[in-house]
């Protein structure tokens, strides 16, 4: 599966999951086979620089990246509506490294 983690700073699997969803600057995308990490890369979150509709732009990026689950500390109403609509699972977690957040998948 492919999971995404909203982060403030890119430190690979040590990146700390951000408390925010739409405005977090970066997204760490991890490819998993079972519990094994097969690939990891970081992309920019277009929502971070958006004037409005940040959460929707973030969700669109996740859709375009083919992500099935996303982790962040909090999800606003727009984020929840959009994530449900496109069928991406939410993982509510923050302040922990990606490597640890992976375990809640």
């Amino acid at each position: 599966m492919r999971a995404a983690f909203m982060v403030e700073e890119d430190r690979g699997l040590d990146s700390v999951v951000s408390s925010r969803f739409g405005r977090a600057p970066l997204i760490v995308i991890v490819d998993l086979e079972g519990s094994e990490v097969r690939g990891i890369r970081t992309v920019e979150n277009p929502g971070a620089r958006a004037g409005s509709g940040a959460a929707i732009r973030a969700v669109q990026k996740l859709v375009d990246e083919g992500v099935q689950a996303v982790a962040a500390g909090a999800f606003g109403p727009n984020a929840m509506t959009a994530l449900e609509e496109v069928g991406i699972r939410r993982i509510q977690v923050s302040g922990v490294p990606v490597s640890e957040a992976l375990r809640s998948l």
Binding site: G47, A50, G51, S52, G53, A54, A55, I56, R57, V59, Q60, V63, G66, N78, T81, A82, E85, V86, G87
Partner: peptide, 24 residues
């Protein structure tokens, strides 16, 4: 429609179906 939307109100689903969030 999703690409030209300036307010992020038009979301394109994984199947390519546009979905509008009226409030935005």
């Amino acid at each position: 429609c999703g690409k030209v939307c300036d307010t992020g109100a038009m979301l394109i689903s994984p199947q390519g179906v546009p979905f509008l969030i009226p409030r935005l």
